[in-house]
Design a binder for these strands. Structure first.
Length: 574
DNA sequence: TTAGGGTTAG
């Protein structure tokens, strides 16, 4: 058997060592061009044996570009992609010849470590080396720019590409969809179809569907689903999974389940996970757990995401005992809990008021708790008035340099509930000194195909006067139902009445009021919010659903709330 | 011998 075929069959270190010995004894190792040697280097670089790769490399008198490419390619896919970037610099400093593949491999490493400055450096090197017209490399660059969050450069590159093919389109559509430019992604998808040069393929529709999921754009999503059926792209399980996710994130968990239940291809683990997560997001804990059980019968082994989805379902449905049982069964089923699983049970216990148990879990976990975990623990402290644990969690958050407004608000609320006004003042001083920032909350709603977006207290909408009049009417009506503004959801140094005003004009209330005046009686209203819905809005929207006899669905950052006849699908547990 | 675009996640 010749060596090239032999090397393909080598899969263990000892095989590789034998091959290396063979190359050395017959003298081929030292030859200037030796593909098998490159393969060996790549093998050592990819597996956790970079030292072997390095020492092997030192034995080569004049390493070829191929040898360098091999080590870059291996390292870029290894557990330490940053090392590929160092090797690239070593090549440049040593005046070794680079080719387009070298750049491609180092760019992959840049994407994995999200290194924007390095991406820019490689880009200028690509131009200097005369590879700018290479279509494949161009798409790689575009993709990496998008992945490191520089959508402007990705877009510019796309616009200026001398040759574009379907992968270039796909890379930008997917990049925009994942980089918070979902409407731009859908526009590009439409442009692609209008121009008609390329027929959208599986990868294209995945990007477009992901954009619909982000936006909650059901109508676009349905059109894409139809296209998928027409073009028979639904034989691809990844596409089916994205369709399931799209329906779920657009608020139609039933449609998601129909797709899940009738897929023509073989379901994958991700199909199950997506569907479990869909039920979880919609607060249907029992269906999520039922599906989780069915996985075993279908001979699909749950992985860490499955457990996370099931735990998340328990959280949203308040199934504390089920959740704890699930969590405690993980290790026995061969899945070690990670930080997210710990976060999930801390959340579960915390919201059930079992704060001491939640804190004990935090103390016992084998990994270092991160900011999100302390926030999870801090969250329910104000509901249950636990000053002691709130202080511990807040101290950790301050130590870790959190500048999140919410963290300070929560601690301040705990102090306020105990009338510890000096401490309240102290927290506010810290906020002032620290330049604590609040992510602006916004909500949007689609009416007659147009997206209407609202910020808190927004008066930029053309119908703002009618919207505010409607809110006055709502405020008047709900008071008859015993509504008292939950002013502890606001943190400003203002009086009670002003606090009530600040609450009254939260973006989700503006969106609901606008929908009430813009849609016919009895139709369902669907609102999307970028943050979590606030407790006061939750209470008010429940009353609106009763008084105005409307079904109102609100998708917040993590889940759906379906308000109907004065109650919410989350059963006030969220 | 080595290139580009892809689904689930508190």
């Amino acid at each position: 058997m010749d060596l090239n075929r032999l090397v393909q069959k080598c899969s263990t270190v000892s095989h590789m060592k034998q091959l290396q010995a063979h190359l050395t004894t017959n003298g081929r190792f030292k030859s200037p061009f030796c593909p098998v040697r490159s393969k060996l280097i790549e093998f050592y670089a990819l597996f956790p044996l970079p030292h072997q790769a390095h020492s092997l490399f030192l034995q080569i008198d004049t390493p070829s570009t191929n040898d360098f490419n091999a080590i870059l390619r291996g390292l870029a896919s290894s557990y330490q992609p940053a090392a590929a970037i160092s090797w690239f610099h070593r090549m440049l400093c040593g005046s070794h010849k680079i080719d387009a593949l070298t750049c491609s491999f180092v760019l992959k490493a840049c994407a994995r470590v999200l290194a924007r400055p390095q991406t820019l450096q490689v880009h200028s090197q690509v131009v200097r080396s005369g590879f700018a017209a290479d279509a494949l490399l161009g798409t790689t660059l575009l993709d990496v720019y998008a992945k490191v969050g520089d959508l402007g450069s990705a877009r510019k590159l796309f616009d200026e590409m001398p040759v574009r093919d379907i992968a270039s389109w796909n890379a930008l559509i997917a990049g925009l969809a994942q980089g918070n430019f979902a409407s731009e992604a859908l526009e590009l998808f439409k442009r692609m179809r209008e121009e008609g040069l390329f027929r959208p393929n599986e990868v294209t529709v995945l990007g477009a569907l992901s954009a619909c999921s982000h936006l909650g754009a059901l109508k676009e999503g349905e059109k894409i689903h139809q296209y998928i059926r027409d073009e028979k792209l639904d034989m691809n399980v990844i596409v089916c999974n994205a369709v399931i996710d799209m329906y779920a994130k657009c608020g139609f968990v039933d449609k998601a389940f129909v797709v899940f239940d009738s897929v023509k291809c073989k379901k994958s683990l991700v199909s199950w996970n997506t569907m479990i997560m869909a039920f979880a997001m919609h607060g249907d804990g029992s269906k999520a757990l039922e599906l989780f059980e069915q996985m075993g019968q279908a001979d699909v082994k749950p992985d860490e995401v499955s457990y996370l989805a099931a735990l998340c379902a328990c959280n949203h449905a308040g199934l504390v005992d089920d959740g704890m049982r699930l969590f405690n069964s993980m290790a026995g089923n061969g899945v070690n809990p990670n930080k997210k699983h710990y976060g999930s049970v801390v959340d579960l216990l915390g919201r059930a008021g079992r704060l001491q148990e939640a804190y004990d879990i935090v103390k016992s976990m084998p990994m270092v708790p991160d900011v999100v975990l302390w926030q999870t623990l801090l969250g329910p402290c104000h509901i249950y008035g636990n000053v002691e644990i709130a202080e511990i969690a807040s101290r950790k958050l301050v130590e870790m340099g959190s500048n999140n407004c919410g963290d300070f608000v929560l601690l301040s609320n705990v102090y306020a509930a105990h009338e510890r006004w000096k401490d309240v003042g102290r927290v506010r001083d810290i906020m002032k000194n620290r330049d604590v920032r609040k992510v602006p909350g916004f909500s949007y709603v689609e009416v007659d195909g147009a997206i209407n977006k609202f910020f808190t207290g927004d008066k930029s909408h053309e119908k703002w006067r009618e919207i505010y009049d409607k809110l006055d009417e709502i405020r008047f009506k709900i008071k008859e139902f015993g509504y008292v503004a939950g002013t502890n959801y606001v943190l400003h140094d203002i009086g009670e009445e002003e606090k009530e005003n600040a609450l009254c004009y939260h973006s989700e209330k503006l969106a609901v009021a606008f929908s009430l005046i813009s849609t016919s009686e009895g139709t369902s209203i669907q609102v999307f919010k970028n943050l979590r819905i606030c407790g006061d809005c939750h209470f008010v929207i429940k009353l609106i659903s009763k008084i105005y006899n409307r079904e109102i669905i609100v998708r917040d950052r993590v889940r759906f709330h379906k308000f109907d006849e004065g109650s919410c699908s989350c059963k006030d547990y969220w």
